[in-house]
Design a protein around this nucleic acid. Structure first.
Length: 262
DNA sequence: ATGGTTGACGATCAA
């Protein structure tokens, strides 16, 4: 079968229930991974999603911040979660499809404003989160697995609107990129999006603060789809649904898609 | 160098 999958930082699943439904109706991925749900699990508006055929969900949530959910029209089994850096944050959840494929949904900390852990604890938290990911994947050696989410890092020069102007800006600093590369290599993860779309500028996030986000186009590719090589070899159809950034009362992130032969 | 916007929650804090 072919699995179609999308990942989207929704920035409040309750406020944007209608946009999630619009995406499910118009694009119809088999699986949709959401980050920044900003909701306890029992307050996620699942009824409308189920009515559209998405009757399966695994999620972790907390009041006000963070929160990750995997919506699916295919049966899912809860495959657990990891409490990165021991803070009790709802930043990871995993699900298993009936064929054994594992999907990890991750929301890496944004990291605050200053790219220096000696003066900014949030930046230290982000680096520690990435180090724990590296060590976990080194031990785990995942196979038949997909990892998606808002990784809050744009690793390549063509993942940002200006490599030079963002070198000291959190999300594109060399130390963050090195930590992300280490975590990716430790798990043997393939960047499916860039394997599919190797050339050219590609973004999935545009700040709310720009007065005309599309014309200015000062974007960053913060949202990623990775897979282990056994699944990456059958991956395709990668794209960013840029239109969604222009929907009414949008998230500041656009959904990223890929498909997999399972 | 600064400010610009959004969401949850109810004070600001996080992004």
């Amino acid at each position: 079968m072919t699995l179609t999958l999308a990942t989207w930082n929704i920035n409040s699943v309750r406020l944007r229930e209608d946009l999630v439904q619009k995406l499910l109706r118009e694009e119809g991925p088999d699986v949709l991974c959401l980050q920044e749900c900003k909701s306890p699990v029992d307050k996620i508006p699942t009824e409308g999603f189920a009515a559209l055929g998405y009757s399966h969900m695994v999620a972790r949530g907390q009041k006000g911040y963070n929160g990750v959910a995997i919506l699916s029209r295919l049966p899912l089994e809860d495959a657990g979660h990891r409490d990165f850096v021991g803070k009790g944050d709802a930043r990871h959840v995993a699900a298993r499809l009936e064929d054994g494929t594992v999907i990890h949904n991750v929301y890496i900390p944004a990291g605050g404003d200053v790219a220096d852990r000696t003066v900014n604890d949030k930046f230290g938290h982000k680096l520690d989160f990435l180090t724990e990911m590296r060590d976990w994947f080194m031990a785990e050696r995942p196979t038949r697995s997909i990892l998606v989410g808002d990784l809050n890092i744009a690793p390549r020069e063509d993942d940002v609107w200006s490599h030079k102007q963002l070198l000291k800006v959190v999300s594109h600093t060399p130390i963050e990129v090195a930590h992300l590369d280490d975590a990716q290599q430790a798990g043997g993860w393939v960047d499916v999006t860039r394997a599919d779309i190797p050339d050219g500028q590609l973004y999935s996030w545009w700040s709310y603060r720009a007065k005309d986000w599309s014309a200015a186009d000062k974007g960053r590719r913060l949202d990623h789809i990775w897979a282990t090589p056994d699944l990456a070899s059958g991956a395709g159809d990668s794209r960013v649904l840029r239109d969604a950034r222009g929907w009414d009362r949008p998230s500041d992130h656009a959904p990223v898609f890929a498909s997999f032969d399972l």
